[in-house]
Amino acid sequence: MNDFDWKQLLNPEFYILLEFGGIKIGLYVVLFIVFAETGLLAGFFLPGDSLLFLCGIYSQLLMKELSTGSDFLDVSFLAALVSVMGILGNMVGYWFGKKSGSYLFKREDSFFFKKKYLFQSKDFFDKYGTKAIVFARFLPVVRTFAPVVAGIVEMEKKKFMFYNVLGSILWSFTMIFAGHYLYELFLSQFNIDLKHYIEYIVIGIVLVTTIPVLMKFLKKRN
């Protein structure tokens, strides 16, 4: 613990490689983070897309205790577990939004809650309608508050669940499979181990996923 650096909390690799008492708990931490992003309204500072991409790279390590003996099945099972936690997290976010009504729009800011993100998510929801639940999965910050907004505006539960399931499956399988198979491709074809370039990968994914949100925010200000 003496070597612990708080900056590690912003590094997705830290969670994947986490151990407790000599036992690797990375898989369970990852699943909790995916749930917390929407279910606990704490997702705006947690790694999302980059975490899933790295899960694909480290899938063999994460699935070591649950391995089926098939590489494809292991990666698919990992993506399915992440998808289920994403679905559950969104369901809790939707329920909370429906119960809280307009209360959140009047709530004061705190470390775990920023009202401006809620307004940005509402604008995004107003623009894309029910499909926002799917699109939001690939956007940090918006991903956290979109299901809450859906609950506040009382989006039909069946519609919400359809887009919730669809979005979670697309997000988890796309990001995890991309990480896994790009890692294998670079290693086999170019002899490049992407694990040595984790920082650059994380920065790249963060830029790609946040630029649309930043552009929308700046455009709104102008």
Rank of each mutant, 00 (worst) to 15 (best):
F53R: 05
Q60L: 01
L61F: 05
Y58D: 01
E13N: 00
D49H: 00
I201G: 08
L81F: 10
Q60N: 10
E199W: 05
G167Y: 07
R221N: 11
N222C: 03
A136S: 15
S59K: 02
M91W: 11
F138A: 06
T210D: 03
G93F: 04
A79Q: 06
D3R: 15
D109I: 03
E108M: 08
S168R: 03
A79V: 09
Y15I: 00
V206D: 08
L46R: 10
L73N: 05
A150P: 10
V92R: 02
E19C: 00
L187D: 14
S110I: 00
K219Q: 09
N222M: 12
L104K: 03
F53K: 05
F112N: 10
L61H: 07
Y15A: 05
V92S: 09
A42W: 09
R221L: 11
E13M: 02
G151H: 02
K115P: 02
N2P: 07
A150H: 04
T130F: 08
L66R: 01
S67C: 09
Y181E: 10
F145H: 03
L62C: 01
I203W: 07
C55S: 12
F138Y: 10
D126P: 00
V30E: 04
L66E: 00
I205D: 09
K158E: 11
L10D: 08
L18H: 06
A146V: 15
L81N: 04
L62H: 04
I198G: 07
N191A: 15
V202C: 05
G204M: 04
L54P: 12
P140E: 11
F113I: 02
N222A: 00
G167S: 10
V148C: 09
I169H: 00
R221F: 05
L170R: 07
L182Y: 13
F53V: 15
L194D: 09
G93Y: 02
S59R: 02
E37A: 11
K220S: 13
E156Y: 05
I87R: 00
S168I: 09
L27T: 00
L187T: 12
